[in-house]
């Protein structure tokens, strides 16, 4: 298992209304060696509230230690609104957002990138594919944190 004390500081905010999806995502992240704390939010509003709390209650370093895995179809506040809100706020603007959803519609992908998402990942129904995608994400997360070391 690959661990790193720098990446360990990063809290992964998982905005996902489906508890099953949340659990499967977390399981696969763990299998991919990601041991960071995962904060599960049942809807967009909870995710925004959590991020806002962190942002107001601490300094920039805490904000830097957040990463958001965002589903699009959620009750109360959907993924697009979350993206909009976070990217509109100067304090939360820099938080990396990875959209993780079942939709692979080109227009939706385009819309997410336009709103400022960093990566768009489709959750396939095929579980092998699903696991693979999440593991790739895990590897990716390990890689992107390397510049922080220097």
């Amino acid at each position: 298992m690959i661990t790193d004390k720098n990446t360990a500081e990063v809290t992964i905010v998982l905005a996902e209304d489906d508890e099953g999806h949340a659990k499967l995502t977390e399981k696969n992240l763990r299998r991919a060696g990601i041991n960071n704390p995962v904060q599960w939010c049942k809807n967009g509003q909870e995710a925004v509230d959590f991020v806002t709390d962190v942002a107001t209650g601490s300094d920039d370093s805490h904000i830097d230690s957040l990463l958001i895995l965002l589903d699009l179809n959620m009750p109360i506040m959907d993924g697009y609104m979350v993206l909009e809100k976070l990217k509109a706020d100067e304090k939360t603007r820099k938080i990396p957002v990875i959209v993780l959803t079942t939709t692979d519609d080109k227009r939706e992908v385009k819309r997410c990138y336009e709103l400022g998402c960093n990566i768009y990942i489709t959750k396939p129904v095929d579980y092998a594919g699903f696991s693979h995608a999440i593991r790739e994400l895990g590897l990716f997360l390990n890689v992107v944190k390397i510049p922080d070391l220097s």
Binding site: D18, G20, H21, L24, K27, N73, T102, T103, K123, P124, V125, D126, Y127, A128, F130
Partner: peptide, 17 residues
Amino acid sequence: SHDLRSPLVNMKGFSTE
């Protein structure tokens, strides 16, 4: 077709689990 996929992910995922 979108929303029906969501439970499928779970069915497939958890049966594998």
